[in-house]
Nucleic acid binder design. Structure first.
Lengths: 117, 117
DNA sequence: TATTCAATTGAACATTTATTCATATGAAAA
DNA sequence: TTTTCATATGAATAAATGTTCAATTGAATA
C-alpha cells in the first residue's frame, strides 16, 4: 500500500501536512502576532493611531477628534501603551501621546492598500 | 484673547485638532482597515493563513495541522473567504484552500517583525 | 439506490471586549 | 488649602466572538 493511498483513506495528505507542520512557527510567535493585529482590529484604535501619526496629541484632543469621551479614549490608550504602540509624556495635568515608531504606520498603510482593492 | 488661550481653557489645542481632523481618512476606510486587521487578530486564523502560504491544503489537512476539529476550521475559513483572503477549489468531496494573494503574507511578515522586537 | 465521507452550517455556550458611568488621582490655579 | 481640571481607573453592561455539538449537503463509492 502506497503512502498516498493511506492519505486518501484518512482524508489527509500526509506529506503535505508533515511538510507544512515542520514549517510552522512557534505557538508563542503566532500568539504575539495575532495579539498585535487584534489591537489594530478596532476602528477606534486605528483612528487614534492614525491621528497620532500626524501629530502628538493630548487625551482631550484625541477625544475631540474621535468624538468620544475622554474615558473611552483613555481606556484604549492604555491598551495601546500595553502593546507598545504609543508612548506619552506628562506636562502638568496633560498627557501628550505619540507613536513609539512608524512600524504601525507601515502596517496601517498596507492594510489600507488591501482594503481599497 | 489669543487662540492658544482658548485652547488651554477648553483643554483642546484647536489648531492641532483642526489640522489632524482634516487629515483623517473616511469613516468607511477606517472601518475596512480595522475589519481586515480583526481577521488577522486571531491565532487560529493567523496559523491557517500561514499554513496556506506554504501549500494549498484541504480542510482536513488544516484540521490536522491545527489540531482542531474540521468544523472549527471550516467556520474560520468562512470568515477568511468573506474577507477575501483565501479562495478554494472543489475536487470531488474535497475543498482545496489557498491564499488569494501574498498581501496577507506580507502583513504577517511585518507583524512578525514587530512582535519580535 | 443506499452508504460513506469531506465539508458546511446553525444554534448554543462561554469568553472576550468596548463603552459608559462613577470615582480616584494628582497637578495647577484660585 | 481648597477648588478645578486633565487623565486614569474600576465595575457594570451590552455586544461580539470562537468553539462545540448536532444536523445537513452533496459527491463518490459500494
Amino acid at each position: 500500500m502506497k503512502n498516498s493511498d493511506l492519505c486518501e483513506i484518512k482524508c489527509i495528505h500526509e506529506d503535505a501536512v508533515k511538510q507544512v507542520k515542520s514549517e510552522m512557527l512557534h505557538e508563542t510567535t503566532f500568539q504575539k502576532i495575532s495579539e498585535d493585529f487584534k489591537i489594530l482590529g478596532d476602528k477606534t484604535r486605528i483612528k487614534i493611531l492614525y491621528a497620532l501619526s500626524k501629530k502628538e496629541l493630548c487625551v482631550c484632543d484625541l477625544s475631540s477628534i474621535m468624538g468620544m469621551t475622554d474615558s473611552a479614549v483613555s481606556h484604549q490608550l492604555r491598551l495601546l501603551r500595553k502593546s507598545n504602540m504609543v508612548k506619552f509624556r506628562k506636562e502638568g495635568k496633560m498627557a501628550y501621546y505619540s507613536l513609539v515608531d512608524d512600524h504601525v504606520v507601515q502596517l496601517i498603510k498596507m492594510g489600507q492598500e488591501h482594503a481599497q482593492e
